[in-house]
Simulated scan of single mutants.
Amino acid sequence: MFVQLNERVFLNLNKITRTKIDHVEDGIRVRFYEGQDQVAKSQRFDDVKKAEKWLKKLLKSA
């Protein structure tokens, strides 16, 4: 199942083994992994709750 992260990136959820909400230099991002390799990351969020809400909405649309 493919979902669109933004206007240029489609993500195959069947291959995603884990997601991680992570604090990085410029804010909070959701990272998507296939095994040990990071394959995509989301836009920047101001807080963890907004990132969680976005991720839940993305997964429901799939």
Rank of each mutant, 00 (worst) to 15 (best):
H23I: 15
E34T: 09
L13D: 03
K57R: 08
N6I: 04
E34A: 09
V39I: 15
K50M: 13
K15Q: 15
I21L: 02
L59M: 05
H23Y: 15
L59Q: 06
V3D: 04
I16G: 03
K60H: 05
K53G: 09
F10A: 13
V3K: 01
A51D: 12
A51V: 10
V48I: 12
R31F: 04
L11N: 00
D37S: 14
K56C: 08
V3R: 02
K56R: 12
E7F: 15
N12G: 12
D22V: 11
N6M: 03
F45Q: 06
K50S: 15
K50V: 07
R29P: 04
K56E: 14
F32A: 03
V24L: 11
D37R: 15
S61L: 01
K57M: 03
A62K: 05
Y33W: 14
R18D: 05
V39D: 09
K57P: 01
L58C: 03
K20S: 08
E25Q: 13
L59G: 01
Q4S: 03
L13Q: 04
V9K: 12
T17R: 00
K20Y: 07
F32H: 04
E25R: 14
E7L: 13
I21W: 00
G27Y: 06
Q38T: 13
I28M: 08
F45Y: 05
I28V: 10
F10G: 08
K41A: 13
D37A: 14
R8W: 13
V39F: 07
Q38Y: 00
A40R: 10
K41F: 12
V9I: 11
L55F: 04
A40G: 11
D46N: 11
T19P: 00
A51F: 06
L11F: 03
A51W: 06
F45S: 04
M1G: 09
V30I: 14
N14Q: 09
V3H: 04
V30C: 08
R29N: 06
L58Q: 02
Y33G: 14
L13E: 07
I21T: 02
R8Y: 15
T19E: 08
D22P: 02
A62E: 04
Q36G: 07
H23K: 15
E34F: 06
L59E: 02
A62W: 03
V24T: 09
L58Y: 01
R44H: 15
N6H: 03
V9Q: 13
E52M: 07
R8V: 12
F45V: 04
R44T: 15
S61G: 01
E25S: 13
Q36S: 12
W54D: 05
H23W: 14
S42Q: 10
N14D: 11
F32C: 03
A62T: 04
L13W: 06
K57I: 04
L11T: 02
D22C: 12
K60L: 05
V39W: 08
